[in-house]
């Protein structure tokens, strides 16, 4: 049996990569993908803990997260398409008119 801590470690690494993706990449779609990666990392940790505690409820929670993530991706991508239509680009730095 692999100890839970290994999974948590993996989850932390993946999450950090996701964060770096958000902070470094300018392509809105890649940024979005990074967000998904972060969600997955969290899910992974959650499932790992669920196994340790033998709590099925945690799996239910992950199920909900995946479902909501699906909805979020649909709406988010629709927003991206709208932005692309007006701005003609998917660069997040171009969408910076709201500033002081």
């Amino acid at each position: 049996m692999v100890p839970t801590s290994y999974y948590v470690l993996l989850s932390a690494i993946l999450f950090t990569i996701g964060v770096l993706g958000v902070l470094l990449r300018r392509n809105a779609i890649v940024v979005f993908m990074s967000v998904e990666l972060m969600l997955n990392a969290a899910n992974l940790a959650l499932v790992a803990f669920a196994r340790e505690r033998l709590a099925v409820e945690a799996q239910v929670l992950v199920f909900f997260v995946i479902t909501v993530a699906a909805a979020e991706v649909a709406v988010g991508l629709a927003l991206l398409v709208s932005i692309f239509r007006t701005k003609r680009t998917a660069d997040v730095d171009e969408v910076s008119t709201l500033k002081g």
């Binding site: 958000v22 902070l23 470094l24 300018r26 997040v92 730095d93 969408v95 910076s96 008119t97 709201l98 500033k99 002081g100």
Partner: peptide
């Protein structure tokens, strides 16, 4: 100046 408009 803090509010740059850059999401990142």
């Amino acid at each position: 100046a803090l509010q740059t408009g850059y999401v990142r």
